[in-house]
């Protein structure tokens, strides 16, 4: 299905579209959740709510770079996805090791269990996709 001429930097063709959908869902989920929690009851779990807000911002930025496309955006998105993965792993481990620091859950609690582990699966998929979307060379090498 290569009938449509593809711009080299386009990141949202094919599986990329699915990726953007899930990132969009996570943006809405994380941003609205943290906005509500920070507005109503910030004192209860400031650390957890701030982390959710940061997660929302990272998701928003990655979504923007994916939609924008191009080689620079691809590199920036790669770095952000790596940061996101690190965030999920660090915060996830943190919530498991020291639950007392988190009176309420964050988006990244327990490696994103409350979101069907999408937060940990998404950056892995995105990293794979972004690496594969690097300027494609002819030849069998992947």
């Amino acid at each position: 299905m290569t009938a449509v001429e593809e711009k080299p930097g386009r990141l949202i063709s094919g599986p990329g579209m699915l990726l953007v959908w899930f990132y969009g869902v996570m943006v809405v989920g994380a941003v609205s959740r943290s906005a509500y929690q920070i507005a109503t009851d910030f004192g209860r779990a400031p650390l957890a709510y701030s982390l959710s807000a940061v997660a929302g911002l990272v998701y928003g930025f990655i979504t923007y770079t994916l939609v924008r496309g191009g080689e620079t955006a691809r590199r920036v998105a790669l770095v952000c996805c790596a940061a996101e993965l690190a965030g999920v792993l660090i915060v996830g481990t943190w919530t498991v090791v020291e639950p007392s620091a988190f009176p309420d859950a964050t988006v990244w609690s327990d490696y994103g269990m409350g979101y069907v582990f999408i937060p940990v699966l998404l950056p892995l998929t995105a990293l794979y996709w972004l690496r594969r979307s690097a300027v494609r060379r002819p030849g069998p090498e992947a």
Binding site: I12, S13, G14, P15, M17, L18, W21, F22
Partner: peptide, 12 residues
């Protein structure tokens, strides 16, 4: 996205 991936997105 007029490929199968558009269908996957709708399913998601």
């Amino acid at each position: 996205e007029r490929t199968r991936w558009g269908s996957v997105t709708a399913a998601a």
